[in-house]
Simulated scan of single mutants.
Amino acid sequence: MAKPPAPKNAEDGERIAKVLAHAGVASRREAERMIEDGRVSLNGKILRTPAVKVGPGDDVRVDGKPIAERPPTRLWRHHKPDGLVTTHADPQGRETVFQSLPKEIGRVISIGRLDLTSEGLLLLTNDGELARVLELPSTGWTRRYRVRAYGDITEEAIEKLKKGISVEGVKYGPIEVVVDRRTGSNTWLTVGLKEGKNREVRKVLSAVGLTVNRLLRTAYGPFQLGALEKGKTEEIRRSVLREQLGKLYPLDGDGYPMKEGAREADMTGRAVSKPERPRPPAPAGKGPSRPSPGAPRGKPGPGKRPDNKARKPDAHHRRKP
């Protein structure tokens, strides 16, 4: 029996992992693992592959429970203390970042991670797709750290890191290092990188003779740790979030992603198109109203008023033959 044809366009639905990510169930990668583990069903059937699209009226469930309606995208800054792991469940029973968060923010996902002994800025979101986008090196956002390390670093080593370095067979991209000051046997550095691989700062600095004994993330792209107190969480205002994400991950005025023609996959599993919002009528006036953004510009055609209403000819305005 022939396989049914694959959907030809976005109107036929969205990938199941993407739908789960938008719902804040998990990141797209984690959602794919959940599918492989048999935890996700579509219309009553357990899925074994993420190569499935969700269409109109489909019923998506995780562990037998229907996923919630898709919420607007939100983002929080969190000042992670050291001694906490950035995971929802730790096999060793250690305390996690998520156990210490305010209950009212609901289930969230971290954008990148900070290891057990690292501290500082941790971005949290309810949108797994946003987390995936912001973690990609191609996004170009710089993660910036304040680092205290035992030992000294030479200009030659700084130039080496600036060009990228390989450590134990793993290649790391360009890393910016600025020496802030030296205190006794320690050196304070500001480090900037765009990849954020596992324990990257510690590994690359170790490769040039430094042992990191304190690591504090101060910025992730345009978002700063600032004066946020240790252990505290603060939501980023929607207007600021929209401005900073820009074309990278555009949001509408209600906080919903506008990618793929402003389509939304609501979290009942239905793929729907967002209707265009009607523009308010132009104010009455003598002259032509200003065109709305995106409207074609130009002079009114002959015989037309600026408001595009036909003008009745009279004795004073009839054209001469």
Rank of each mutant, 00 (worst) to 15 (best):
139 T>M: 11
56 P>D: 08
221 G>H: 08
79 H>D: 09
105 I>G: 03
303 G>V: 00
183 T>C: 03
284 A>L: 02
32 E>R: 02
211 T>R: 09
216 L>H: 14
20 L>S: 05
81 P>R: 05
203 K>F: 13
171 K>T: 05
29 R>K: 13
73 T>W: 01
203 K>N: 13
192 G>T: 01
42 L>F: 14
257 P>F: 10
181 R>D: 12
188 W>G: 04
218 T>N: 10
279 R>F: 14
140 G>T: 02
12 D>H: 12
274 K>E: 15
29 R>W: 00
69 E>H: 06
311 R>K: 12
104 E>H: 11
234 E>W: 01
225 L>E: 14
296 P>N: 13
303 G>I: 00
89 A>T: 01
308 N>L: 02
197 K>F: 08
153 I>D: 12
6 A>V: 03
298 G>H: 04
45 K>G: 04
312 K>M: 09
80 K>T: 01
37 D>T: 01
212 V>D: 10
80 K>H: 05
249 Y>F: 15
124 L>E: 08
57 G>C: 04
127 D>Q: 08
54 V>Q: 12
92 Q>C: 06
60 V>D: 15
266 D>F: 01
60 V>L: 13
209 G>T: 04
47 L>G: 07
3 K>T: 00
155 E>W: 02
15 R>C: 03
112 G>V: 01
24 G>E: 01
224 Q>A: 08
254 D>P: 06
262 A>C: 09
314 D>M: 00
111 I>V: 07
62 V>I: 06
316 H>L: 10
31 A>G: 02
97 V>Q: 06
29 R>D: 00
249 Y>C: 06
207 A>C: 09
41 S>T: 01
201 V>W: 12
106 G>P: 13
73 T>V: 07
224 Q>H: 10
12 D>T: 07
4 P>W: 03
4 P>N: 08
318 R>E: 14
73 T>C: 14
290 R>Y: 12
25 V>M: 12
204 V>Q: 10
289 S>L: 00
185 S>G: 09
